[in-house]
């Protein structure tokens, strides 16, 4: 299957065969599926995200990097309106999803979260069976009839690379899995909602290197069909997995570009200092 979505312009001198297999290095950036416009987010009076305007290209992996407290997780949570559970948060600006403002008066935040999935830093499976963990979202949202749930669960677990490990123990608690398996269960749970976009907040930072590897492999497979935004403070990870990288510092988005460019030829001195490990 051709991983490239339709309508993406490729640089003329490259054919598909010559194109680097992992990186869309020379392509024109695909149209953004998600976009922020002068987005500011405040905790009380403290401005955690300052007038950020960034695109999230469709069916690509976009990494948001930056030192702790730079506002990257806050920005990520703005993409599916998860900041609303934190007291005293206010915001200005827009988040456009296919051109529509997610914060418009007519938009139901529950619907936003049903369409834009999220995976958290610490694996948080429900204290229920593996099957129920994956089936719950589609079930409550009436995505598929009840009798089709087993099929959807299998497909989602398969996509998350977990089916082989759990197919004989679907009735066991999600908490009986290892940390890495739990995180893939959480990814399967998000996939079962058939979202277009999946937001990941440092999905591997609580995992050991082997589990981290598996998650990163999984990201490669998922990028063919999903748009992924990943927040990470692990720069190697960002460089390995992402197509585009945004660098944030002190709430400001200092740089956005193709990952290779951001890491090898950053435009900003501050970015260079960060990616070369001089601070952060």
């Amino acid at each position: 299957m051709d991983p490239r979505p339709q309508g993406v312009m490729m640089a003329p001198e490259l054919t598909a065969a010559e194109k680097p297999p992992e990186k869309h290095l020379r392509e024109a950036m695909p149209a953004p599926i998600l976009e922020t416009r002068k987005l500011s987010i405040f905790y009380g009076r403290n401005e955690a995200v300052k007038k950020v305007s960034m695109p999230v290209p469709e069916r690509r992996i976009t990494a948001i990097i930056g030192p702790s407290g730079c506002g990257k997780s806050t920005l990520l949570r703005a993409f599916n309106r998860m900041n609303e559970f934190i007291a005293d948060v206010s915001m200005a600006g827009e988040v456009l999803y296919r051109g529509r403002n997610l914060y418009g008066k007519d938009v139901d935040p529950v619907e936003v979260r049903a369409r834009i999935g999220m995976v958290f830093q610490k694996p948080n499976p429900f204290p229920k069976s593996i099957f129920q963990n994956v089936a719950w979202g589609p079930h409550i949202n009436g995505l598929v009839p009840r009798r089709e749930l087993p099929e959807l669960v299998e497909r989602s677990l398969n996509q998350a690379g977990l089916w082989g490990e759990v197919k004989d123990r679907l009735g066991e608690s999600g908490l009986s899995l290892s940390g890495g398996q739990q995180q893939r269960l959480c990814i399967a749970r998000a996939l079962a909602m058939q979202p277009e976009i999946i937001l990941m907040d440092e999905p591997a930072s609580a995992l050991d290197p082997v589990s981290t590897d598996r998650i990163e492999d999984l990201l490669f497979e998922l990028r063919e069909r999903y748009t992924i935004v990943i927040v990470t403070h692990n720069m190697q990870q960002a460089a390995r997995v992402s197509d585009y990288t945004a660098f944030m510092d002190l709430g400001v988005m200092l740089e956005f570009g193709v990952t290779d460019q951001v890491f090898t030829r950053p435009r900003e001195k501050r970015t260079e200092d960060y990616v070369t490990g001089r601070f952060g």
């Binding site: 998860m82 979260r113 958290f120 409550i140």
Partner: peptide, 27 residues
């Protein structure tokens, strides 16, 4: 009941009530 459980449920498009009914109250 851990906040992460509520967030997990909400991130799947659950309403407050469904989150409470299926995750918070049992916990």
């Amino acid at each position: 009941v851990p906040q992460s459980l509520r967030q997990g449920a909400m991130a799947l498009g659950a309403t407050r009530w469904l989150t409470v009914r299926h995750h918070v109250l049992p916990g």
